[in-house]
């Protein structure tokens, strides 16, 4: 994982800890959102709104649809910030 993705991961971790009362140590790249972190589709909507604000990346629900793990979240954000 390169530095840029590390930075994004740190940011995602902060957001998740803040929104879902998780321990920072739980938010690792391989963690599954639903199975491991108990983040359901309704939570995902709130997460999306929050990430959009904090990363200033133009996220859409469609881009989030295939996301299963923290790694997926980081990848989507990395890809979009390159484009931006």
């Amino acid at each position: 994982m390169n530095t840029e993705k590390e930075n994004i991961l740190t940011q995602v971790r902060e957001t998740l800890v803040e929104l879902f009362d998780l321990e920072p140590s739980e938010v690792v790249p391989e963690a599954k959102l639903y199975e491991d972190l108990d983040i359901d589709s309704i939570d995902a909507v709130d997460l999306l709104i929050d990430l959009k604000k904090s990363t200033k990346v133009d996220l859409t629900p469609a881009q989030f649809k295939q996301v299963r793990t923290i790694q997926d979240v980081v990848d989507v954000l990395a890809e979009l910030s390159v484009k931006a």
């Binding site: 803040e18 929104l19 879902f20 009362d21 309704i42 709130d46 929050d50």
Partner: peptide
């Protein structure tokens, strides 16, 4: 609080 925290 943020809504996900309220849900919980």
């Amino acid at each position: 609080l943020p809504r996900p925290k309220q849900y919980r």
